[in-house]
Write a protein that binds this DNA or RNA. Structure first.
Lengths: 344, 344
DNA sequence: TAAGGTTTTAGAAGCGCTTCCAAAAAATTT
DNA sequence: AAATTTTTTGGAAGCGCTTCTAAAACCTTA
């Protein structure tokens, strides 16, 4: 059925080795021969079978991305960067979406066994050392984005610093009661981020001479619903916060929704700042700490290619910084009212 | 290096054919033999090489998606449905993102040549008949989502009806000056949709006894910027519209932004209705005609699997309906002011 | 023009599997 | 117990390529 290298060889009147040689731009082919082969290829509209090829060269020219909830804005924007890079490099992009811990483990343990992809980008998920070692043994390079492992090249945001600056900006605006909505830690998604951001919050509070009130810190799901629920909890305090820092834009959106629902003026009665800088935040004019999401994706691929080219390259830890984006949801505290007042 | 079927056979003390048979749950293997093989597999932690396997069985257990601008909310939501289905079926998902006509043509012509994927889902892009025939000849089944070809199973939204109902809902609220922002047609992305929606608009206008004013129809890019630009044009008319129907939510967002920028109250001074029902629309409380995006993705995969199972299955045309989602951007026209007034 | 050196070429081997066929083993019948 | 049938098994062939080896073809040079 399909035309093979034998057909091309026959039509061109050469051996299959020669055809293969012109296909792989090997040097030693007489140019007259090359012409013959090329025109046979054109005549037959031949394309080499990538599978048979992979069989020998042990490369697929495909890279895999393991990503939790790929459709979340955060993931989408990183993925976009990844796609930009893979397209430019002529690599195929295989998406392994994970929704459960089982799926994550399945991919972690199964993928390295067999070379369906040449390398892996892992987003927001941290393989433990044992898994990382399996990758190394299997010769499957992996790069982490938005997580960290000492054994793998990792691209991380400086979360401590980001959270620090977010809270500091709020303190500088006169806020003393600052709520912090953090993401859940269990479930194993988004591990360190939550921790690091908490550290940054503590530090900023300390520097501003504000004593940390545990009531003002609530942990919620990384979703709008989580943000909403946490906001209710925060606003029901005897002494509610005048500003809220959410560990992700998605959660900040939930804060915004709740404020709107309660007719609480933003930013007059409540300042809100998020974290991530997803496209959506721009639309809603949400102040946020922006991460270079697209860049992280592209850089992830670049680093992966370096590991592919040099198998014994040692892992790097690359830190990227956030930038403060002050939009319309943060304002100076009106000294008149020290706490949020609900306008009806 | 890697453990092969020969290693397993040796350890189990059987022939490679036997190992292969237990791997492929073939019936005729004595259960005692099966046990031996299974424990050898476990002992060696063996996984068959999917590439070598594909070489013979001519299947990859991967399906490809060709999608323009995969990161657009519309695409993401369809993709999510696709991922749900592929994960459930244990298929891998390869994403071919297209940003230019060249890329589209590249994938259209190159992909069918060689079986890197077993089948194709094509979103919002219409391959012409010649291409569709190539697919068929190559034995590569393809299903279209959000486009149509007579030669391929197609999942389309009833765009005429959707646009009709959108405009009708506006007319029923008393609006007579209804602007319509349509998407561009050239560029070959999103072809019929724009056309069909225009037809629906015409029909609804006619039924409501409103004469069509060509000035009220403007064509713009499928983006927020497009929506913004079109809105400015519309509002600068001597007799501006009191309501705008945008052919996509993304464009409707641009309308919303412009209204906000001009301090034009929505929906009091301007009603807005979009099309698509992306998640974002919910957040902004945008009224819209909702498409079953997730379903389209899932159904696309289901149909593709049917074509995979039965090569000679003939193409189907499946029509899906939109549902009207009235949220906070549409309101009854205050008869007092017949046209939008700009509040300063 | 022959010898020696260099470039180019044909095609066998082999990648790790599935599938097939023929042979071995087991079960059944006589 | 032998003959026959049925089940199970080993391993060769072959999927479409790349790579390697050895031979052919082409250059030099004497």
């Amino acid at each position: 059925m399909a035309v093979t290298i034998y057909d091309v060889a026959r039509v061109a009147g050469v051996g299959i080795g020669t055809v293969s040689r012109v296909l792989n731009q090997s040097q030693s082919v007489k140019s007259s021969t090359r012409e013959k082969v090329l025109s046979a290829i054109a005549a037959l509209n031949y394309t080499p079978d990538p599978i048979a090829r992979s069989m020998i060269i042990k490369r697929t020219d495909a890279i895999g991305v393991i990503v939790p909830f790929f459709y979340r804005p955060f993931s989408v924007e990183v993925l976009r960067g990844v796609a930009t890079a893979t397209t430019r490099l002529g690599q195929e992009l295989v998406v392994f979406n994970v929704e459960t811990n089982e799926q994550r483990d399945h991919y972690f343990t199964r993928l390295p066994m067999r070379r369906r992809v040449d390398g892996l980008i892992i987003i927001s998920l941290a393989p433990d050392d044992e898994i990382a070692i399996t990758f190394a043994e299997a010769g499957l390079p992996a790069v982490l984005v938005d997580t960290y492992s000492p054994l793998l090249t990792s691209l991380v945001i400086n979360n401590v610093e980001g959270a620090y600056r977010a809270v500091k900006s709020l303190a500088e605006k006169g806020h003393r009661r600052i709520g912090f909505i953090n993401g859940v830690i269990e479930g194993n998604f988004k591990f360190n981020q939550a921790n690091d951001r908490l550290i940054g919050v503590h530090r900023a509070l300390a520097d501003a001479g504000i004593v940390f009130d545990p009531e003002l810190m609530v942990t919620a799901e990384w979703s709008r619903a989580g943000g909403r629920q946490a906001t209710h909890q925060l606003l029901n305090l005897k002494e509610p916060p005048t500003a809220i820092f959410a560990a992700s834009d998605i959660q900040a959106l939930g804060v915004l929704e709740t404020a709107r629902q309660l007719n609480l003026a933003v930013p007059e009665a409540l300042s809100i700042i998020g974290f991530d800088g997803i496209e959506l935040s721009e639309l809603l004019e949400l102040s946020t700490m922006q991460q270079p999401l697209h860049l992280m994706g592209e850089l992830g691929v670049t680093k992966l290619m370096e590991h592919l080219a040099d198998t014994k390259k040692s892992p790097e830890l690359i830190r990227l910084d956030t930038s403060l984006l002050e939009r319309r949801t943060t304002a100076t505290l009106k000294s008149a009212s020290k706490s949020a007042s609900i306008k009806i």
